[in-house]
Design a binder for these strands. Sequence first.
DNA 1: CTCAATGCAAATCCTTTGCATACCT
DNA 2: AGGTATGCAAAGGATTTGCATTGAG
Lengths: 142, 142
Amino acid sequence: MDTKHAKRLDSKGLKKTEPRKKVLDVMSSTDQFLSAEAIHAIVDTKKRPISLSTVYRILETFKAVGIVSSVSLENAKEERFELSHEHHAHHLICTSCERVIHVHGCPLDHYEKTLQKTHDFTIEDHRLDFYGLCKTCRDKRI
Amino acid sequence: MDTKHAKRLDSKGLKKTEPRKKVLDVMSSTDQFLSAEAIHAIVDTKKRPISLSTVYRILETFKAVGIVSSVSLENAKEERFELSHEHHAHHLICTSCERVIHVHGCPLDHYEKTLQKTHDFTIEDHRLDFYGLCKTCRDKRI
DNA sequence: CTCAATGCAAATCCTTTGCATACCT
DNA sequence: AGGTATGCAAAGGATTTGCATTGAG
């Protein structure tokens, strides 16, 4: 695992520092969106803690080189981060527990082309997220 | 116009105060997403200014009763607001000038049904935004 | 050894809140 | 009149920044 992280850093010309490797450890351990604070809290439990501002700086750097991407969830004020996927994905986000289900494949190619023509707008990216209730939370409801 | 705003407030059982009407004035004058600060700045130029915290409180109230809805744009830290539309819409957002083009109609009904079954997830809402360059900004590029 | 990365504390930005006052109904 | 909305100033939370120190290459 450590090797993989080292390579990821190398390939972007970034120094392989402890804090960076720790952030990668935490982020690769889940497919959920994490806040800087959450990452910091998890990292924190392992040996030498790293400072919260370092986490912010690392995330900023990682975002700039494309290692991570960020989302702002509806009704959450803080930014959330995840490791960038090679493949474009959409999300089912539970409004109750905030858990994220990743969905691969995208039904929008044709629609996107139509829009570009209709509105004379060059689309470079899109974000499609579904909000609702996951099975667990739905079953919990009265 | 004023009558229309008055009715909008009445129908939600909200007092028809000057600040509320002014916020409605500003928001109905554009189809762009506005930050609380932006709304405040525009309102401000007209006769008696209103306080920024009042703008925040009004937006909070309006959001609660469904008069406005909010978005968090990629790479913008502050929340943006718009008057709620009766019809669901998607957006083409220019990453250069931040202008928004509204697109009506939605190509996702069938896809959404499929997802609900596949993932046993109850979808209540979705957000689909396209990011890219509007004609004006694209033409400006070197 | 050298420059970039980190830690810490202070600063900043956006948003919320407490309390006294003003204003709808 | 009675209670809600507003203004102002201060508080709060998330993120950023300055500066001295540490550490990777």
